[in-house]
Design a protein around this nucleic acid. Sequence first.
DNA 1: GCGATCTCCGAACGTTCGTACTATATTTCG
DNA 2: CGAAATATAGTACGAACGTTCGGAGATCGC
Lengths: 184, 184
Amino acid sequence: MALASQVGLEGLSIGSLSRRLDMSKSGLFAHFGSKEDLQLQTLRQAQGLFAERVFAPALKHAPGLPRIEALFSNWLAWIENSANLPGGCLILAAATEYDDRPGALRDELAAGQRELRGAVAKAVRLAVDAGHLHAQADAWQLTFEILGIVLATHHDRRLLGDPRASERALAAFQRLIAAHQVSG
Amino acid sequence: MALASQVGLEGLSIGSLSRRLDMSKSGLFAHFGSKEDLQLQTLRQAQGLFAERVFAPALKHAPGLPRIEALFSNWLAWIENSANLPGGCLILAAATEYDDRPGALRDELAAGQRELRGAVAKAVRLAVDAGHLHAQADAWQLTFEILGIVLATHHDRRLLGDPRASERALAAFQRLIAAHQVSG
DNA sequence: GCGATCTCCGAACGTTCGTACTATATTTCG
DNA sequence: CGAAATATAGTACGAACGTTCGGAGATCGC
């Protein structure tokens, strides 16, 4: 995952990975029947880690605004966390890398993204049910805009190294929530 | 540009490009002294095309809201335009590809993005000066959020094939503008 | 008209790629 | 304990990679 986050899932080669692990190429290769399987398992690992670090902790918060805020906060932390993955979010990188290359990787990625969006939208609906957000709040629209904030943060943080990215992300998120908040 | 948009700037190989152009590898190579130069010129070409298609037409509109709206509309059209570049926006793809790989490509990319952001922020400031937006409107914050909408659209459109992406983008943009609009 | 410049080519280079075989240690299990 | 499964290594392959070189044909400027 660390290597793939730097060079991309496509750039992840068995030779360089084996060198990094002090293994022979064939020894490493034996664990995966093919390069595609290595890529697939790497991607699944990243998606699993995302669920564990971002989603699972948010579920411990009360449904409604608290949970959404925790989710967003964890997500931002995940984006900023370059200690864990030196090359930034592997999933985001793979998304632009494979958005037009049909195959198992794209399918896995799209499925994960659809699941993620569904989960965020569900959290938004729960906030509506809890009376925290207006009944007219469009869960998919809010999900779309939250994703946009995350993507912009990733962009500004990693490519431009803008330290204010998180601050802007938080401001955007709060404005977004306030616009749909009951008695806001 | 077409090939690079599909396989990425790093995946753009001289061999495959020469085959696509019905040229010899060495014949094509002679035009660029190195692969990096080919990548650099491809990126510059894309950035130039972006300026020509997205920015230049917007400048024909009156400063203020009309110009910002034109800018956003052109940008969305650029994102959706898969006829021109079959693999989606080359610049966005390169941004995630090179956000952690130092070198001439990253520098060129970052410079272009900084220039882009500056131009968007300037358009926002002109809207404030024209009295279309509140004086407290933070140009950089608005630029950040507009970029987020564009990125989310690209994501949803290309990876998930969501046909409602543009519609959501427009709604997000209008809500963003309305929130900062005078007498809105 | 003729040298200089430009465009393109074919062949070859060393390297890396993904993958296939075979063989040897190590671990697991009945 | 012995057999079966697992983990790793070694070697080899054909292909593609970026790059270099020498040369053929066209084009242009004096």
